[in-house]
Each structure stands twice: as structure tokens, then as C-alpha cells.
């Protein structure tokens, strides 16, 4: 039953994509309407700001409308939309971070000299305070690093899927994720000082 519903939804979406790509704004509205919450949540999880997430979602949807006729693989609409939202959110983070705090990037040379967390008495970050500290540290990161952490830890996307969506080799994504975690560690350390 579920499979049939899924198939029927895909057929309906396929027809909407065709119509929207042909310039039908109502069809585009229907396509986006059913996905808006998901796209907004994705933008919010990267920007961590309602205003910025709103901007990023709107930018992404307008870009999606503009570029939809050029989307070749119509079945990959959701992955394509997500990638556009991620890019837009990264762009918003980049713009807004210039006027807020200095970004810590995954390759920051100067940050490599920061003292690392003491590994001897680890404590699980299961408290509210710890989660808050991690969130604040996350907000110190650049857009690209945030996006990767969100896709993996919040969206639960497998690394192979992220690699495919971004067009990067799997090894590169693994390397970037490892660097992203290190950047988060450094940001957390900076946050605690």
C-alpha cells in the first residue's frame, strides 16, 4: 500500500516538475509548498537564525524556479533542492558572519595552536549546558563546515550520498568531515575560554 502511495506521489511530482519547468507557477507553488518546512529546517539547521533561514530558503526557491528548466534528472528534484538550500544557507552565513563573529574554518592555521581538550576525564555531552556549548561552537564555524556537519549529523545523509550530491570523491568528503569535527572541537575550546 505504502509503495503504491509512494509511486503515485512520484508520478504526481513528476507531472508537477514538468509543468513547473514549462513556466507554470502554480505547479511550482505546489511542489515547493509540500517541501517548504523541510527546506526551511535544513536552512535553519545551518544558519541557526530564523531571519537568515528565511532569507536562504527564499533565495534558494527563487534560484530553483529560475534553473528548473535546466534540471536534467527530474527524479533528483529533492536532492537538487537540498543542495541549492545548502549553498544558499552557506552564502547567507558567509555574508552575515562578516558583521558578527570571526569564522573558524576547518583549515584555520592559527587555530591549530589552540590547546586541545583534555582527553583524560571525558564527560558525555548529554547535559543541556553541553549541548548549548556545542551549538554556540557550531555558530562559530564557516558555512561549508556547518553544512557538512548538518548533512551528516542532522539530516543523517550517508557520506556516499553527500559525495554524490556535491560531486566530490568519497575520500574527500571523509577527509572534510574529519576536519569539520576538528574545527568544531577547536571552536568548542575557544567557546569555553
Amino acid at each position: 500500500m505504502e509503495a503504491r502511495a509512494d509511486r503515485s506521489s512520484r508520478v504526481r511530482d513528476g507531472a508537477l516538475v514538468e509543468r513547473a519547468a514549462g513556466g507554470d507557477r502554480e505547479a511550482f507553488d505546489l511542489l515547493i509548498g509540500s517541501r517548504l518546512d523541510r527546506l526551511y529546517r535544513l536552512a535553519y539547521s545551518i544558519t541557526r537564525s530564523e531571519l537568515d533561514a528565511r532569507d536562504a530558503t527564499q533565495d534558494a526557491c527563487v534560484l530553483a524556479w529560475r534553473e528548473l528548466p535546466r534540471l536534467r534528472d527530474r527524479d533528483s528534484l529533492d536532492a537538487w533542492l537540498s543542495q541549492i538550500v545548502v549553498n544558499a544557507a552557506r552564502g547567507v552565513v558567509r555574508r552575515t558572519s562578516r558583521t558578527r563573529v570571526r569564522e573558524l574554518s576547518i583549515d584555520e592555521e592559527t587555530a591549530s595552536g589552540l590547546p586541545r581538550a583534555e582527553p583524560s576525564v571525558p564527560a558525555e555531552a548529554d547535559s543541556f549546558a553541553d549541548s548549548n556549548a556545542i551549538q554556540r561552537a557550531f555558530e562559530r564555524l564557516d558555512g561549508r563546515t556547518r553544512a557538512l556537519l548538518v548533512l551528516h549529523y542532522v539530516e543523517g545523509s550517508p557520506l556516499a550520498e553527500i559525495a554524490k550530491a556535491s560531486g566530490s570523491p568519497l575520500g574527500t568528503i571523509k577527509w572534510r568531515l574529519s576536519n569539520a569535527r576538528k574545527a568544531l572541537e577547536r571552536a568548542l575550546e575557544a567557546e569555553r575560554r
Binding site: 564527560a123 558525555e124 555531552a125 556549548a133 569555553r192
Partner: peptide, 20 residues
């Protein structure tokens, strides 16, 4: 005490409210 950055800790910290 330093915070240990486990996968679970990151996922928990970055998770969004379900009603967002």
C-alpha cells in the same frame, strides 16, 4: 570538565525542535 564530542553529542546538540 571538557566536553567529549561524540557523534551522539553532536547530533543531540544540533537537532532541531520537532515542531519547527
Amino acid at each position: 570538565t571538557p566536553i567529549r564530542l561524540t557523534d551522539a553529542a553532536i547530533t543531540q546538540a544540533l537537532a532541531l525542535p520537532t515542531d519547527l
